[in-house]
Design a binder for these strands. Structure first.
Lengths: 289, 289
DNA sequence: TTTAATGATGCTCTCCAGGTATCAGATTAG
DNA sequence: CTAATCTGATACCTGGAGAGCATCATTAAA
């Protein structure tokens, strides 16, 4: 490229910081390898052949592609560009996660976020399989080879329909629900949530009488609104405004449902650690039991 | 790329035909130069980092661009692709040149032809300046550093309007035009053509009485059709059918107007010599005086 | 505990790229 | 017409990058 631009071996060699003979031979080797004459050179003048001009264009292209590849690699390494597959539960997406994703996205335009809605157990499986980079699950989780950061901690609340006898109370105690019909999520999928809720009910002296299982939070709330029963969910449901529903605090339940971000300790890539940094920054004081 | 595909240094080294330590160090050097870790390698497993995956994609791109640059360069060298700037005169474009360009184009799809309409003197100038690759001019031309091939040789004919006294004759002698009004092209530009015609008239005993100059062949024929005068052109005007015009042979003019293709002897590129080969093939027996 | 597998490291040697000096051909100066 | 100058090519030599061999270090499997 230097010779093509200077059309003068000595000047090109000066520009490249090598001696002129070295450059002459370099060009000779190149021509030999390509089996194409790139320069017409008499003792007095150097000119590009047509093929040489074509190769000059090609060389510019090569330099561009190489530079871009290197630059992109470095950016990926620094996490400036990349992609993250992030799992989330109903609680996570109903709580802090949306604003968290939004601010992260605004700060790191080059990172493409791929959110996946899955319950905790599915997310754990996908993390194992490498199908997710970060899971946002009901925790805390202690799992070999995984690290976690808490992202939210919610009280439980009771949701009833507007005409329910308890609807005007504002807050109740958990044992007041002993005789109520419960609507809840699918037992198999929501095991992590139930493993929180059921011990609390047992402590309050009853086993919840589940009359209906819905497929997800929205379904549960819909069934509650129809008057088919009540439910206990996390306080993030306050963010969802639904007519005919009333949310009641549970006075005697101080336990909080943790939602944690979870990732394989190994293979901490640039974008992943940037995301985790953002999580840590957001909840510096929140600590796990 | 081999390591990234095999995820195994020894196998990759085998594939590349080098020893494993050499490959290990090559990767180390690459990582050092990029300042980016491309592989996570324990003693038991090799995996691409995210940056490594990015660089693998980049490398594929680089290989493609390099291969394409080399291939394109070779094709240009062989003349399989390229571009040719070809000048032509009214006579050339009225005669064999169109079919010549057409067959050449059909045979060499990769070569882009750029025709430029110019009179002989302009073409010569542009050839000197390197603004044309091949000129098709009124010849023969003897010019240092240039080669030529004849592409057509035409008789002169007289063109008159339909009601002209000579119109029914079919053929005439040149001196019968002694008293006629002549229409002709611009004296300055058509010097090459005039340098043929005027000596013939002088030999026939008269100096043509030019009453009107048009800008080009079409203009001349238009003025002739209007009855403003007659003209002498080459027989290629037979290819242009214009109402109200009659073409007469000139019995006593055996001289022929040569049109030749002309190019700088030096810098014979692939596509240029292919074009010249095609010209030579087309007129193998036509010889210049 | 031993064995096998696998990447990293140390050492040696080769050979290619680069440097210096010079040649060969062409243009310019006087 | 000769000398000077310019410019790319060639001859020869040297140093260092890179290749191979032997071996180490670590880990998983037997």
């Amino acid at each position: 490229m230097a010779v093509a631009e200077e059309l003068h071996f000595r000047r090109a060699a000066d520009r490249l910081g090598v001696a002129q003979p070295a450059l002459s031979r370099a060009i000779q080797h190149l021509e030999q390898e390509l089996q194409v004459r790139l320069f017409d050179r008499s003792n007095r003048a150097v000119r590009l052949t047509e093929a040489g001009a074509a190769f000059l264009r090609g060389s510019h292209g090569i330099m561009n592609v190489v530079d871009r590849a290197v630059e992109e690699t470095r950016q990926v390494d620094r996490g400036q560009i990349g992609s993250l597959r992030i799992g989330y539960t109903d609680m996570a997406i109903g709580g802090v996660l949306p604003s968290l994703l939004k601010t992260f996205q605004a700060r790191h335009r080059g990172i493409v976020l791929h959110p996946h809605h899955d319950v905790t157990s599915t997310q754990l499986h996908k993390l194992d399989q490498g199908e997710l980079d970060i899971g946002c699950v009901t925790g805390p989780i202690s799992r070999a080879g995984y690290d976690q950061v808490p992202i939210q901690s919610e009280r439980l609340v009771c949701v009833v329909y507007e005409n329910h006898p308890l609807a005007r109370r504002g807050s109740i105690r958990l044992n007041e629900l002993a005789q109520e019909d419960f609507i809840h999520g699918p037992t198999r999928d929501w095991e992590h949530f139930f493993s929180y809720l059921f011990p609390l009910c047992r402590r309050a002296g009853f086993v919840p009488h589940i009359v209906q299982e819905a497929y997800n939070s929205a379904g549960i709330l819909g069934l509650v609104a129809c008057g088919m029963g009540v439910t206990v969910l996390t306080e993030s449901v306050r963010n969802i405004l639904i007519r005919d529903l009333v949310i009641l605090d549970l006075e005697d339940v101080t336990e909080r449902l943790q939602t944690v971000a979870l990732w394989k300790t190994e293979s901490l890539s640039g974008s992943k650690s940037l995301f985790i940094d953002a999580l840590r920054e957001r909840s510096p004081d929140m600590d796990l039991p």
